[in-house]
Nucleic acid binder design. Structure first.
Length: 598
RNA sequence: GCCGAGGUAGCUCAGUCGGUAGAGCAAACGGCUCAUAAUCGUUAGGUCGUGGGUCCAAGUCCCACCCUCGGCACCA
């Protein structure tokens, strides 16, 4: 049975380049998942894009004296380069600064407003006269009214831990003031739109309680959040939340609800709507009409997956479902699973842009190949707990596992067959019990790996495939075709044939993880079509502006998630090493860069 | 402070319903030479953060504490 499966990596902020953590948590698991589902023959839609809005983008723009749009476009283009190089096969990678996204965000806003899920409210807030802007909580500093710590933030005092309102601070200061400057602050009334989340509290809790297939931490976190101090019958976790800001960068408030030239819909409201708007855009960009609706209609064979980092759980298990409930009136499916990843650390510390403690994806991919990185991120994916990226670990896994176990298995078998069996798959004699057992094990690996990927247990899948590769190496050492070829050519050919069948199966099982090398191997095994598709960027023109998008074009022939049918006598491609060994000096070279400006 | 996650072999990580601790890599020893000095076999290696408790039995349940990290709602 074919299922309609959609998979969405979280939208990255484009206020700077992306580091490896962004890929470990969202793009890589998403890609493993969708490449598998496509081979499997399911109908897959996977879209996302750059989140161009939000304060970080405007802050960067101010610092650099540019427009937010210019900043966003620059890093959006860089993300696209990362995605191509790392082979992240999305149907569409767009961004939120498009007319399509504006229109759909406003549709959500209007629908929710008309159904009274959104209300207006006026509140006093600190206004920085010199910077001519209202101050978000964390942009206010002052003396804590409780413990008198002098540098409390507007939302919370770091010293005593009490939650604060910025208006409570004694002698509040604007953080927009540069050192030496004093900005004048006033309390001004400002009107904002609020999403009335309490209306969704009970329906969301009822829904979430049924999601027993979620990861335990995602489920318990969500339930806890929704319950608040209340009960299951009367949960109190949700409070109204402001969805507009006094900003000039972002989606404008729909004119139907009033004239607010200096306010915008705030980023957390519009970004999640991107999943929906990007699906619509995908169909529009490629002339597919309303094909996107297949994945946005409630049906038993429709499932959606959100690949996110743990900091984002609430937005995907509470906020976004609330918007869908309000907008869709029950006709739009809520996320089926939200496989949140924990964090990837770097040499024992958190990634930090300001401390220059980061490995930028574009730097990494300029120096090293994509599959070794995908291998490392897959085998060390932060599925259950934070994990650590270490350069020594990267070199070790590349040299001692990827090259030694898998690359070498392919290489030693293919070169032997190529040299000794006339560049063809050897024609086997009768298979003995060991021969059959190994082939069966590799065929079963497709099932085991597929089930693991389908359940978003990515490490388990790749580890199983590698265990079979190790067995295949052991089989070769036992059968010793380099010896038997001297006395019994058919027996040697049979061993080689068995191993080539196993490799062909493992190539399929590993394709979601290692698409580039699996495609190379596919060719070396003699196949004349590709396993992997290609990437294409396009400039999409709308009425007032253009934007750059990326799309993945699958191969015309779907090789399928099925056992090898390799036959003796078929021509092989020329064998070539799949992976490169890395010199140990890489460790010192790369580690030395950490903590220093680029 | 509140909510949550994690602290298991030298390293990176698994441990489902409580029943004599696992994998990969690294190490030691042995084998092989087809292969990117790659591979294969064997061995060694842990008082499972600390202190209590429940139980015939606890890494696994309960309590306290220590360390690291995330969220705490207008910095996504």
């Amino acid at each position: 049975m074919t299922n309609k499966i959609s998979a969405y990596p979280a939208w990255p902020y484009v206020n700077g380049p992306l580091h490896l953590g962004h890929f470990a948590g969202t793009f890589v698991p998403n890609d493993i998942f969708v490449r598998y589902q496509r081979l499997r023959g399911n109908e897959v839609l996977s879209v996302t894009g750059s989140d161009t809005h939000g304060t970080p983008v405007t802050v960067t723009a101010e610092e650099e004296g540019r427009t937010p749009r210019a900043v966003a476009e620059e890093y959006h283009a860089l993300v696209i380069q990362n995605l191509i190089r790392l082979g992240i096969a999305l149907n569409l990678y767009t961004h939120t600064d498009t007319e399509n996204h504006y229109r759909i965000t406003q549709e959500f806003f209007l629908k929710l407003y008309r159904d009274e899920y959104i209300f207006k409210q006026s509140d006093p807030q600190l206004y920085d006269v010199d910077a001519a802007r209202f101050l978000p909580d964390r942009y206010v500093e002052g003396e804590c009214p409780i413990c008198h710590y002098p540098r409390a933030r507007g939302d919370q005092c770091e010293n005593c831990g009490n939650l604060l309102d910025p208006l409570q601070l004694i002698n509040p200061r604007s953080r927009f003031a540069k050192p030496g400057e004093t900005h004048t602050l006033e309390v001004r009334e400002t009107e904002h739109f609020y999403l009335d989340l309490p209306q969704f509290n009970k329906p969301l809790l009822d829904w979430a309680k049924a999601q027993t297939h979620w990861k335990p931490n995602v489920l318990s976190f969500t339930l806890n959040y929704l319950r608040g101090d209340g009960t299951d019958e009367n949960p109190t976790g949700l409070k109204p939340r402001a969805i507009t800001r006094d900003l000039e960068w972002g989606v404008p408030i729909p004119p139907e609800v009033g004239d607010y030239p200096n306010k915008r819909i705030y980023v957390w409201f519009d970004a999640v709507i991107g999943y929906y708007s990007a699906s619509v855009e995908w169909a529009n960009d490629f002339g597919l009409g309303d094909a996107w609706k297949k994945w946005w209609t409630v049906a038993p064979d429709v499932q959606s997956y959100q690949f996110i980092g743990k900091d984002n759980i609430v937005f995907h298990t509470v906020i976004w479902p609330a918007l869908l409930l309000g907008y869709g009136d029950g006709k739009i499916p809520l996320p089926y699973d939200v496989p949140s990843q924990e964090f990837l650390n770097l040499e024992g510390r958190k990634f930090s842009k300001s401390a220059h403690w980061a490995v930028w994806t574009h730097d990494f991919l300029a120096a090293y190949d994509p599959d070794p990185l995908r291998y490392l991120l897959a085998t060390n994916m932060p599925e259950y707990a934070d994990t650590d990226f270490k350069w020594s670990e990267f070199v070790r896994r590349n040299n001692d596992e990827l090259v030694a176990t898998w690359g070498n298995l392919a290489n030693r078998s293919l070169t032997f067959a190529y040299k000794n069996f006339d560049k063809r798959v050897p024609t086997p004699g009768e298979l003995n019990a060991d021969d059959r057992a190994l082939i069966e094990k590799s065929e079963r690996a497709l099932q085991v790996v597929g089930d693991a990927i389908n359940a978003c247990r990515f490490r388990e899948g790749i580890e199983h495939a590698f265990a079979v590769a190790r067995e295949a190496n052991g089989y070769l050492n036992q059968t010793e075709p380099w010896k038997t070829i001297k006395v019994n050519r058919e027996r040697a050919g049979t061993s080689l044939y068995v191993v080539l069948r196993v490799i062909d199966n493992l190539k399929t099982a590993l394709y979601p993880y290692l698409p580039f090398s699996s495609n190379d191997l596919h060719r070396q095994l003699g196949y004349t079509h590709d396993l992997a598709g290609t990437f294409e960027t396009r400039t999409i023109a709308e009425e007032t502006r253009d934007h750059l998008v990326l799309t993945y074009i699958p191969p015309t022939t779907n090789a399928g998630w099925k056992p090898s049918a390799l036959r003796g006598g078929e021509a092989l491609g020329e064998p070539k090493a799949l992976f490169k060994k890395l010199d140990e000096s890489v460790i010192e070279l790369e580690t030395a860069k950490l903590g220093k400006p680029a």
